[in-house]
Amino acid sequence: MNNLSPLSELTERWLRPAVERVPRGLAIGIPYAWLLIFFLAPFAIVLKISFAEPQLAMPPYTSIFEFLNEAGDYFSVELNLGNYLLLIEDDLYWRAYLNSLKIAAISTALALLLGFPMAYAMARAPERWRGPLVMMMILPFWTSFLIRVYAWIGILKGEGLLNGFLQWLGLIDQPLAILNTDIAVYIGIVYSYLPFMVLPLYATLEKMDESLLEAAADLGCRPFKALWKITVPLARPGIIAGSCLVFIPVVGEVVIPDLLGGSETLMIGRTLWSEFFTNRDWPVASAVAIVLLLLLVVPIALFQRHLLVRAEATR
């Protein structure tokens, strides 16, 4: 290296590594900046506006910061807790939160009850069937969510196909009121979110070593006990992932309660939606969003940990 001229030494030691680092810098910088601007910063703004007061202007909220330049450069922040107090005082909000959590919990349990046998049967199917079966499970999930919910309106309504079928069978005389009740909401949610439950379950069950069950059977374990003692514990990562994928979005669900539920089906996503679009009270909508996010922090963290653990494990 001694016979290099100072210029080429400069190039070799400093310039070239620096130039080569440009793509690396850009590769880190671009997606990072994008997410900071369009994902993290928006939440800071929601938090800020949740402390503001509504006003009849555009934007329809007051500023919580004040700059008083005449009295020197002093800066004050006025936090208005009124929106959060409203969430506590008006029972509409906490009833909507509780009801959303209840509906999400029950529909997650229903999806698990229905999804586990399906995932199990798929994982035990002959190998050449598995690809097409997974494909069949994914296909409805690619089909528009709105359309799939819409399809149920024609089936569930008073003079709809389900009532017609049940009357034809002679099981009922009067049409059942299913549409615009919580039952319709449960059907819609389980139907729409079933693939989110089945696919992670299938992914864990498919990897399971079947000889474990054979060993259990050889040792005199009944099939049902083997299912409970061996299959279910081994499927735990899939159960956790599937449950998170159903539970978290369902808590904030808007479309299904709006189209299939009745006017008394309270869900917090719907409340947020109408605060925002109908009442145009953006600060309250922001406060509703912040509290919803706080409620979901634990399941979201659980799910993220699952994804990261899985990513590290396959490294």
Binding site: W273, F276, L293
Partner: peptide, 10 residues
């Protein structure tokens, strides 16, 4: 897994 209403509002 973030509810869509929160992403949309933010």
């Amino acid at each position: 897994v973030m509810p869509e209403v929160i992403i949309g509002l933010a």
